[in-house]
Design a protein around this nucleic acid. Structure first.
Length: 287
DNA sequence: CGTGGGCCTGTCTA
DNA sequence: ATAGACAGGCCCA
């Protein structure tokens, strides 16, 4: 799919599980990021949007990065080539770090529909109401708003055991006055360690936040699907013993996570996160 | 340091 | 229909 002379496939970009608060109504995708509601569509080969300025939309969808160059740089084998050809135009989105952090804290041990439900509940209860096309939308609540919420009100959003993680993370962000955007200035390793200080943030959640909101394209989140990708297509790259143990165990120990994560970053390089998204989506769609 | 069990609750399947 | 399994992990023993 092309957008002008830039490869971009909007539907896949918004469907591939990186971002949760977009919904398609007719041709248009409606979404909220930071304090803005906007709608976007790809129509007749053109990318159109209402509610934000061109620079905002182009930055949000990373349209200014050279996708061809990125895919060339992760082009290591026939499987990644196949995934890249199939979903050519899938782009990583520049999310707001705060919303991204809370989203992935909530995402543990949940399916995507359930995650969307939780986040929308939180926005409805604690966010600001805004309008577009006579429709109501809600901004994602600020850290002050969530930090001041009662445990009961948050729990009622369906957060379950994540309630105290969200509450304590919000309180810590508020109390330390940390600007999450500043983590962009740190190295991948430093920023990851900083994120993992927050309750409810382990290696996987940190890697998602780094990749989707802090410009760390070398991040390589490993979830059950990526583990599946590696076992199904890259097991020959791992030590036989290790691959065997992985395939017989259900979850991922922190040591196993570290090992797969490091493998991915070394194997695919600076843009390992793009490779991860293509592989992840390809695997999910081939069930 | 590595490993296993528990955890809230919405969805999906049988 | 309604119970039961499972979900894009994290934390603590």
């Amino acid at each position: 799919m092309e957008c002008g002379d830039v490869p971009f496939w909007l539907d896949v970009t918004l469907c591939c599980g990186q971002v949760f608060r977009w919904d398609k109504i007719g041709d248009w995708w409606y979404g909220v990021t930071r304090d803005k509601a906007f709608k976007v569509r790809q129509f007749g080969g053109k990318f159109e949007y209402v509610g934000v300025k061109p620079a905002f939309a182009e930055h949000y969808f990373n349209l200014d990065v050279d996708l061809q160059k990125i895919i060339d740089s992760v082009n290591r084998d026939s499987h990644i080539r196949k995934a890249a050809r199939e979903y050519w135009g899938l782009r990583l989105i520049n999310q707001d770090p705060w919303e991204c952090l809370i989203s992935y804290i909530c995402a543990t041990y949940k399916s995507i529909p359930a995650i969307k439900h939780m986040l929308n509940n939180m926005a409805r209860k604690f966010g600001e109401k805004i309008h577009l096309d006579e429709r109501e939308f809600f901004t994602f609540p600020s850290c002050e708003k969530l930090a001041a919420a009662t445990e009961r009100d948050l729990r009622d959003c369906g957060l379950g055991y994540r309630t105290r993680y969200v509450l304590e993370t919000a309180q810590r962000v508020r109390d330390t006055q940390i600007n999450l955007e500043d983590l962009k200035k740190l190295s991948y390793g430093e920023a990851k360690r900083a994120l993992m200080e927050f309750p409810g943030v382990g290696a996987k959640v940190a890697d998602c936040v780094l990749l989707f909101s802090l410009d760390k394209t070398e991040s390589f989140p490993v979830d059950v699907w990526v583990k599946r990708v590696i076992l199904n297509h890259y097991s020959d790259k791992l030590q036989a013993e290790f691959a065997k143990r992985l395939s017989t165990k259900k979850g991922l120990s922190s040591g196993d996570y570290e090992r797969l994560n490091t493998w991915g970053r070394n194997y695919f390089g600076k843009y390992a996160g793009y490779a991860q998204e293509y592989l992840y989506h390809f695997e999910r769609m081939s069930i």
